[in-house]
């Protein structure tokens, strides 16, 4: 029973955790946040609010989102905002950072 419950917790997807953080941090209805949502373009999250989200994600996942590097890449035209701020992509980046931390 306990194992099953624990497993259930572990299986909560990265996207679900990120969506919950965004909903709570920015007071956005949870059901409007989908994996396809763009944090900036669709959800209207500005850079200051995104700092709060980054803070919560860093703490929740034990990582450090490389916001400065991402911003630089976007400014230099080497990446698009979609690669980092569409939530399914953001979740994938988080999974990579968590995996890299454990490696």
């Amino acid at each position: 029973m306990f194992t099953h419950k624990f497993k259930g917790l572990m299986m909560t997807s990265t996207f679900d955790r990120v969506a919950t953080i965004i909903a709570e941090t920015c007071d956005i209805p949870r059901d409007t946040i989908t994996p396809e949502s763009h944090a900036i373009d669709d959800l209207g999250i500005d850079s200051l609010d995104f700092l709060d989200i980054a803070f919560a994600i860093d703490k929740a996942f034990g990582i450090k989102l490389p916001l400065e590097k991402w911003t630089q890449e976007v400014n230099d035209g080497k990446a698009t905002t979609e690669q980092y701020f569409v939530l399914s992509n953001l979740s994938a980046r988080i999974d990579e950072l968590v995996a890299a931390k454990g490696a």
């Binding site: 700092l51 989102l65 916001l67 590097k69 911003t71």
Partner: peptide, 9 residues
């Protein structure tokens, strides 16, 4: 409290 990328709390 926290050292993030480009920000600190």
């Amino acid at each position: 409290e926290h050292e993030g990328s480009g920000f600190t709390v």
